[in-house]
Amino acid sequence: MSKMYYYPLFVIFGACSYGVVSTIIKLSMLDGFSASEAVTSQFVMGFMLAVCIFAVQRKKLNSKGIKNIIPIGILTGMTNISYGLCLNYMPASLAVVLLFQFTWIGMLISCIAKRQFPGRAEYFSIFLLFVGTIPAAGLMDVDITRVPLQGLLFAIFIF
């Protein structure tokens, strides 16, 4: 399979993963746990899974690997914490849609950095993002004016 087809699959996998995360956090909150406790348990489980994978591969971690892993872990952690806090204030469907706005924001940043306009495929993907996520998340019936400002502020920090 061409590498070109891997990237959309990674996006789909990421979307599915964060959809499950919001469900787990919401169900945890219904059972009396806080969003922070739910996110922390996900960090612990993810860390344990990463250690198991690392042990099976039997690779040594050098300083270059550590320098790459730490910033990625910090950014992922900040995203998950913001996402969990965002779920305290808004429906999971809206939080997921706001989370995946990184697609067009990342494209905008890339265009500014490269000083070039996106190509046809990028415009098409942005179009699909906007057309597909709103009805798929059931946002046609959500009154945005009733979403608390705190939820939107935490959603902004997701990016």
Rank of each mutant, 00 (worst) to 15 (best):
V131N: 00
L99M: 09
I74A: 11
I81D: 02
F157K: 10
L128I: 13
C16I: 12
C16R: 03
M107V: 09
N62T: 09
V20T: 11
L98R: 03
L152Q: 04
L9E: 00
A38P: 02
A38N: 07
I70E: 05
V147E: 06
G32I: 05
V51G: 03
G132K: 04
L153D: 06
F124V: 14
T40G: 08
F157T: 14
T133W: 11
Q57V: 04
Y18C: 06
V39L: 07
K3T: 14
V97G: 01
A155C: 05
A113V: 11
P91W: 07
Y5H: 10
C111S: 15
N68G: 10
F100D: 04
A155E: 04
Y83K: 02
S28T: 13
S17F: 12
Q42W: 00
I74L: 12
T103I: 14
K3G: 12
T76L: 10
F33S: 06
P91Q: 12
G19D: 03
K114Q: 14
L139W: 00
M48K: 01
I74D: 01
Y83N: 02
L149Q: 10
G46Q: 05
Y18N: 09
D141A: 13
V20E: 04
C86V: 05
V11K: 04
I105E: 10
R146E: 15
